[in-house]
Computed example of a mutant assay.
Amino acid sequence: MPLTHRRAAQKKAELLEQLRAMELPAQTFRDWCPMLDDQLLSLMVGELCDRLRLMFFGNLAQDWSEFVLTDLGIYRYESVDIGPESRGFQCRQDLEDYLHLRQLRVSVEQGADLADIVPPLLAFSSSNPYLCSRQSCLLFQIAQQLERSGELEQALLLYQQSAHGEARWRQIRVLEQLGRDAEAYDQALAFSQTPGSDEESQRLERALTRLQRKLGLQMVKKPKAASETRIDLVLPAPTHGSVEIAVRDHLQQDDAPVHYVENTLLCSLFGLLCWEAIFAPLPGSFFHPFHSGPVDLHSPDFYAPAANTCSNAVYCNLNNPTTGN
């Protein structure tokens, strides 16, 4: 039965509303379309296609539309010379382990009982750093849930088992919530000897100061900050533009031009100088041609291999300014 108000540009939701308004009886497909063949064919290789997509991309978030969007110029990626050693999965077991971890994560998101998820997650082991990082992220995610729900002892256990970048810092906070300040102080002191990042170093420094005060320990004096050169200006309110532009115009001289660039200049220069290092085809950094940056950029062990590559790239670029991008 044709729809009376159907238009070519009409949305499916509008067509559905028209069908519902007609109050047609429920029928089988054969009753609706008696002239078609009795046989309906369905493609039953969805799971296989997902596995092939996972093998190529290293994740199930990207799909084959990346090829089309890249050809159309909508997505643009840096060309990286990717070899067999750069693959996200080196064997079939890596693939099975990824799907196992993904199923555990889906179960967490669907609100499954954590008591059924934590034991197999803690028992998981792999020689693949990419999979280990995914395990650490999921452990950290569950630990956060437990911490928010007040199950601090269980949260502490998972934080201790996780290599997530914020797991050590959260251990200190949980120990403080448990009233175990002396243990928190010892942990913070030990972690501060080998901080994983500048952010963690600053957080541990604040924690040590707070815990020293709580425990009545002698406060360690902070080194005095380096003196700064300050210029105080009193300028008329700008009639157009911002305060920064007004300061730029005031300081401008013919023999000493002034440019206002905020943080963009240094970041851009650093990116150009270290471009070869950022997009070096190190194992575990790029799995396929559709990465906008290294996969392991935020992993705890990113610094060591990247620092060596960056040093070499900077040396080459400084001695040969025509190299790089």
Rank of each mutant, 00 (worst) to 15 (best):
A188H: 08
Y130S: 04
W32E: 07
G150M: 06
E176L: 05
E14Y: 03
V261T: 07
R105I: 00
D254F: 09
K12L: 15
Y98I: 01
N320H: 14
D113C: 07
P289A: 04
H100T: 07
R210W: 11
E200G: 01
D232N: 03
S268E: 12
D97H: 14
R148V: 08
S42L: 15
L273E: 08
P120T: 00
F279R: 03
A190W: 11
S201V: 00
R203W: 13
R173A: 14
E109M: 09
S227H: 08
D254H: 08
D198A: 10
D249F: 05
D255P: 00
L282D: 09
L131W: 07
A163N: 12
E276I: 00
H250V: 02
P119N: 07
L139D: 04
D81L: 13
D94L: 06
F287P: 00
A182D: 12
W169A: 11
L40T: 02
V247S: 07
C91A: 10
E166S: 09
V68G: 03
L217C: 04
P2Q: 08
I231Y: 14
W169F: 12
A207N: 03
R87G: 12
L235G: 02
L3C: 05
L122K: 04
C267H: 11
Q160E: 15
Q18E: 15
G73Y: 07
S136Q: 04
Q145M: 12
R180W: 12
A246R: 10
E17Q: 11
M219N: 05
P238F: 07
K221M: 14
A115Y: 06
Q154N: 08
A8L: 14
Y77Q: 06
Q252L: 09
R7P: 01
R206Y: 09
M22R: 15
L158A: 03
H298M: 15
L131Q: 04
H5C: 11
E66R: 05
S79G: 02
P294M: 13
R210S: 10
G111V: 02
G324P: 04
A167R: 02
Y77P: 04
Y77R: 02
Q27Y: 07
L121T: 00
C91H: 10
V80E: 09
D37S: 14
A123I: 01
H288P: 09
V261E: 14
A155G: 04
Q39R: 10
Q135K: 11
C33D: 13
A115R: 12
T309V: 12
L48C: 05
